[in-house]
Computed example of a mutant assay.
Amino acid sequence: MNKVFVELKEVVGGQVRFIDTRFDLARPLAGREMYNLEHIEGAIYWDLEQDLSDMAGEQGRHPMISKEKMTNLVQQAGLSPKDSIVIYDQGGSPFALRAYFLLEWAGYSNVHVLREGFAEAIKVLPVTDVKPIIQHSEVTPEWKDELYVDLEKVQKIVVGQLEGQLIDARSAVRYRGEVEPIDPIAGHIPTAINFDWEQLKNDGQFLANEVLVEKLDGLADKAKPVIAYCGSGVTAAPLYASLKEAGYENVQLYVGSYSDWIRENEVETE
């Protein structure tokens, strides 16, 4: 079982590298503003759109970043594969988990996401408005490309050429094509099943491990690959991480997600 989430009591007093990923999809500058105002002492800031996505790309609304950009990101952050890294956001949000996925893809194994959000963290951890002085590193990521699924692979899964169960992390009404507030076409990727990522959290934090196991057990065959996707690849990250936490061994993420799929492929509704 993969331990993704960590609780405050486990990081207090430890030698931890913090990454602040607070963000607001409606106000893209809000996360940086919150960080500049106050953040956990020593934390660096990674922005969903400036750092964790390639907004100039065409593969969905929050496209996957390149290996070059990810390498540059970890080098500028001075992150070593030996570091104990804890990522946080405002709590119960997908942003820290997007960073978690990218760091895991880059070969970092000692990475966790704070189960509680920033508001709880500042009750026990020192905060500051001072940005840390970071010594850049020359680290070379050891890529885990098996975690990342692109459009071509999803197409093969849909037609049965590759084994895998697609899981749509959006709401049931969006999955069924009854409502679509963002994308121009309503529906879901053929063969996908649905599990709304909102079920994974409560009161600003993600559910405890035993509750995640109960909720996700039996959702799909654990002997087969499971691939999480959503609208733009952001809210799929909590489902990706929670499946790992719940004991699924072969979990992957389609970062392009539905917004990438509908550019040139048919959809299903039900």
Rank of each mutant, 00 (worst) to 15 (best):
N194H: 04
A169D: 10
F206Y: 05
N110K: 14
R176Y: 06
R176L: 11
H188R: 00
I122E: 09
A169K: 07
I227M: 02
A241P: 03
E214V: 03
D203P: 06
E163S: 12
L114P: 09
F118M: 06
V113Q: 05
V139P: 05
E245W: 06
F118Y: 10
R174V: 00
L166G: 05
D196L: 04
Q165P: 10
Y175D: 12
D203N: 07
P190N: 05
R174W: 00
F195H: 11
F118V: 02
Q199R: 15
K222A: 10
I189T: 01
D129F: 01
Y148V: 05
V173M: 13
I133A: 04
E210H: 14
L166F: 12
K153F: 13
I185H: 01
I227R: 00
D150N: 14
E142R: 12
L166N: 05
V111Q: 02
A119R: 14
A186I: 03
L212W: 04
V211M: 07
E210Y: 07
K156Q: 13
I133C: 01
R115N: 06
L200I: 08
P238G: 00
A169R: 09
V111Y: 04
G177F: 04
A186W: 01
L166R: 01
V127D: 09
T140E: 14
P132R: 08
G204K: 02
R176N: 11
L151R: 07
L219G: 06
S109H: 09
Y148F: 12
S137D: 05
I182Q: 07
V159E: 13
P184C: 01
D196W: 09
F195Q: 11
L239S: 12
D150W: 14
P132E: 00
E198F: 04
Q161R: 14
I182Y: 10
Y148I: 09
A172H: 08
K244Q: 14
T191L: 08
G204Y: 01
H112E: 00
V139D: 03
Q165R: 15
A119N: 14
V173Q: 13
E245G: 02
Y175S: 15
L219S: 05
K123I: 02
D168L: 05
I227W: 11
K156W: 15
K224L: 15
V158N: 07
P184K: 00
E180V: 10
A228N: 07
C230L: 00
G218K: 12
L212C: 03
L239H: 05
A241K: 13
Q135F: 04
S242T: 13
E116F: 06
L200Q: 02
Q165N: 03
A192L: 03
G117S: 02
T235D: 11
Y175A: 11
R170H: 03
Q205T: 11
G231M: 09
S109C: 06
V159Q: 13
G233S: 09
D145Q: 11
L219F: 03
V234R: 05
L151D: 06
D183K: 10
Q155V: 09
A121L: 13
K222G: 00
N194Y: 05
V211N: 10
G117Y: 06
A246F: 08
H112Q: 15
V111G: 12
A220N: 15
A246K: 07
K123G: 12
L125E: 09
Y229A: 03
K123M: 05
K153D: 13
